[in-house]
Write a protein that binds this DNA or RNA. Sequence first.
DNA 1: CTCTGTCAACTGTCTAGTTAGTTGATAATC
DNA 2: GATTATCAACTAACTAGACAGTTGACAGAG
Lengths: 199, 199
Amino acid sequence: MARNADGTRARLLSAARHEFAAFGLAGARVDRIAADAGSNKAQIYYYFGSKDQLFDTVFAAALDDLVRGTPMDVNDLPGFAAQLAEAYEHDPDLLRLVSWQRLERGARRERRERRERRAGPTPRAAVEATQAGIAQIAQAQAQGRLSDRYPADVLLHAVLHIAALWAPASRDLAWSGKPLPSAARDRIIAQMVLDLVAP
Amino acid sequence: MARNADGTRARLLSAARHEFAAFGLAGARVDRIAADAGSNKAQIYYYFGSKDQLFDTVFAAALDDLVRGTPMDVNDLPGFAAQLAEAYEHDPDLLRLVSWQRLERGARRERRERRERRAGPTPRAAVEATQAGIAQIAQAQAQGRLSDRYPADVLLHAVLHIAALWAPASRDLAWSGKPLPSAARDRIIAQMVLDLVAP
DNA sequence: CTCTGTCAACTGTCTAGTTAGTTGATAATC
DNA sequence: GATTATCAACTAACTAGACAGTTGACAGAG
């Protein structure tokens, strides 16, 4: 086997991303990740330390990628939401990872676990982008370019969730199942956001 | 220990509900459920057949309770959303169960699992209520009492998600963390729904 | 030679599911 | 009304496999 540290690391990360997205932290199998990456289980511990740390690394990378790849445009929140929806469609693992992270690595009391498993660190780039986004929205509201019916953080939160409305991880019983074309979906999402932010 | 089949079954269900809400299907421990219920592991298999079936039972009961306890009022969707939000606040396990169900029991391809674990059945009462709700919304739209900017199923879907905006399982990085009073939260949710449904 | 990357095999623990047997209530039999 | 049979409810102990994490050896590159 050719020696290639960066390549192995990247293959492990990619395999871990798929595995965690599919099965979550508790359901993921370290052996499966190693096998999928064409590597060895020991490599995972060599490179990432533990299963939990591997998950945190995968999650942080995914979120940072998303934030960098789909920057918020405060002057076009409807378009931003539509772009997000397309990112989610293009990579269905993304929102699943987010959901797993909320459920399994969030700040819940975790009544009693073997090892005190503390919540994972939040990815720096994503946190900063979010804070900046809230500030921009607040400013636009102050200038009357956006409705101030809602607090800025609530508004951003709502926009992010509306963008995720079509993701498989959001589907509920109200879902007819008939697949809406991307363009139509984007139009609906943009219109909904417009309904919320129009001054 | 007094013998009480119904009581034991109920205690097991309640313990399972907490356990599954906290840890999900893969993370839940059958032994813990039995211990919490003050019962025995074998009773779980006696009453429910398997861990998966126990989860499905818990989930169906939770969803049916919710649907029955918070019926949709097509003439007051904003109020309906606010009521939902209060139900979610009152029982934080509810939306966690829904999230776990989507992630772990949904119709995903499940790349390869030991046993062919097919997706769980959808609770009858909830499905019927949802279909009825969509029909009512469509009718109200046809009569001009609700905006027809959005298809009826999309509208209901959006309303359900907006109601869940404040649930811990939805919190993302845009979340400031400062707890909004229930009344203020309900007002915001109702306003958002109004923005979407006003003709 | 030595350091880094790699891996097969191993370990101790955990876990879903099973089993064989016990207990208590109810009901039939004398 | 006492004795016995029956069955549902219950339990402790067990099994077989799965799992996260470890080790020690080995190989290629500088």
